[in-house]
């Protein structure tokens, strides 16, 4: 009986610890998935901007709309406290992100605006799409510059 209690306790504790780790891990994986989705839609838009893919207004517009939608995901669920590179594995997110909430929010808003700008531009013309790539890249880069550890 006592042994079973001990075992249960041990399992519960282990489960608790494992559970805590996997909540952060899940968030890290999920936000990296979000980044992959960004890249996937950007791949079409960027390919058109570079001339590697023929320009198609409908496809460009749809990709840009999806991209804009992705910027609207609830970030708090993706970036829980304790999921920075010092506290967790498999992430390059610097702890400074959680110390500069206001600045991060400003950059998130800027990304939303740049994505909305692309959504307006992508279906209009190739030139408009090309013009919207810069601000979008700038918004992505602003956060990566400030809050992502170098690739080692």
């Amino acid at each position: 009986m006592k042994a079973i209690t001990k075992l249960t306790l041990a399992l519960t504790l282990a489960g608790g610890v494992a559970g805590a780790v996997s909540a952060d891990e899940a968030a890290i994986k999920a936000r990296q998935g979000q980044m992959k989705l960004y890249a996937h839609y950007l791949g079409l838009l960027g390919g058109m901007a570079k001339g590697a893919v023929p320009y198609d207004a409908d496809k460009a517009g749809a990709a840009a709309a999806s991209l804009a939608m992705l910027t609207k995901l609830d970030s708090s669920r993706l970036w829980p406290e304790g999921s920075d590179e010092m506290s967790a594995d498999g992430t390059r997110a610097l702890p400074a992100m959680w110390e500069n909430g206001d600045d991060v929010m400003k950059k998130v808003m800027a990304l939303g605006e740049a994505a909305a700008g692309m959504e307006m531009a992508a279906g209009q013309s190739l030139e408009a799409l090309q013009g919207a790539m810069g601000p979008l890249g700038g918004a992505c880069g602003a956060c990566h510059k400030a809050y992502r550890a170098p690739d080692s």
């Binding site: 890249a39 950007l42 960027g46 810069g134 890249g137």
Partner: peptide, 8 residues
């Protein structure tokens, strides 16, 4: 121009 790599 935009800072995007070929992998975006």
């Amino acid at each position: 121009t935009s800072g995007f790599t070929p992998d975006y």
